Simulated scan of single mutants.
Amino acid sequence: MTKTEVEIYDVAIVGGGPAGLNAALVLARSRRLVLVIDEEMPRNHVTRESHGFLTRDGITPSDFRRIAKEQILEYPSVRFQSGVVTSVIGSDGDFLLQLESSEVTVRSRKLLFATGMKDALPDIEGLSEVYGTSAFVCPFCDGWEWRDRQISVIAPNDSSMHYVKMISGWTKSLTLLTNASLLTVEQRAELSIHGITLVEESIQRIESQQGYVSRIAFNNGRFIECEGIFFVSTLVQSTKIPEIMGCNMSNNGPVMKVDTDSMGRTNVPGVYSAGDASGSPFQLISAASSGATAAAAIQLDLLDEEWNMVN
């Protein structure tokens, strides 16, 4: 391939997670020429099993993607490209995408961002070693497997009460670790009423064996034993390109999300967003659903344009 080669598509989908994959399926069935560009580093790459998706409960993320791609590739109008989009120029009807380390420029009529979020883990020694095996961020995804176990909840002051209340739906054997953030008198009393142990000392490290936490050590020399951890992470957008292109952004709690209408359209004509990046509930099935919705909007918008071109 030469540096002047251009590939032309109806829709370029940036991101190959559940939102991007479901969008690709709907658009393939709509007889659209689609390119899915994916860096293949999903947020859930450390997760052993995915849950809450009807007919796919307990599937591994890698198997979910493999099966999805196999089904999508039954349609001849979809192609997958591994890579990272570094820039987008152009406007509705004629977007030009440049891929990192690629000699091909992609041209598309419509553009869907389904890039999701990334977890920025708290700076705690040993957390990365247990993340995805015995330390998690989402009780709806992993709470069932850790029901009635001894769980430590690591949460900063501004989210600790909400988060520990969520985890209490799966186990009552809870210890809240605020990592040096101090709670109010009222918050302490509330935890005491519900039988939740509070530790406010600074965490020194998490000790584990083969990914399974054994105990948590504190800077004052104290330690506690636990079987699992749920913690609050900082979520960040996987790409800044929608914002650079002028897409409106807003706060979804502590997270910046891409603003869309109910169908996934952004304020930039021809640009759509689906999945976690646009603030849908951070669940596999929710992301897939928003991808299907955005794909339907794209198809309807393309049909309107094509219909009007004849008149």
Rank of each mutant, 00 (worst) to 15 (best):
S173T: 14
L174P: 02
L174H: 08
T175S: 08
T175P: 00
T175W: 05
L177G: 01
N179R: 09
A180E: 10
A180D: 14
A180Q: 09
S181I: 01
S181H: 15
S181Q: 11
L182E: 15
L182Q: 15
L182R: 13
L182W: 09
L183D: 13
L183S: 10
V185C: 04
V185D: 13
V185Q: 11
V185W: 04
E186N: 11
Q187W: 07
R188D: 07
A189N: 05
A189V: 12
E190P: 02
L191N: 00
L191A: 00
L191D: 08
S192Q: 14
S192C: 06
H194V: 03
H194Q: 13
G195R: 06
G195M: 05
G195Q: 10
I196A: 03
T197W: 04
L198H: 03
L198G: 00
V199R: 11
V199T: 09
E200H: 03
E200S: 14
E200L: 11
E201S: 07
E201F: 07
S202C: 01
S202V: 13
I203C: 02
I203R: 00
R205Q: 05
I206V: 14
I206A: 03
I206D: 01
E207I: 12
S208P: 06
S208T: 08
Q209H: 14
Q209K: 13
Q210K: 14
Y212M: 13
Y212P: 02
V213N: 02
V213D: 03
V213F: 00
V213K: 06
V213C: 08
S214T: 14
R215P: 01
I216C: 04
I216P: 01
A217S: 12
A217W: 05
F218Y: 11
N219L: 10
N219S: 07
N220W: 01
G221F: 05
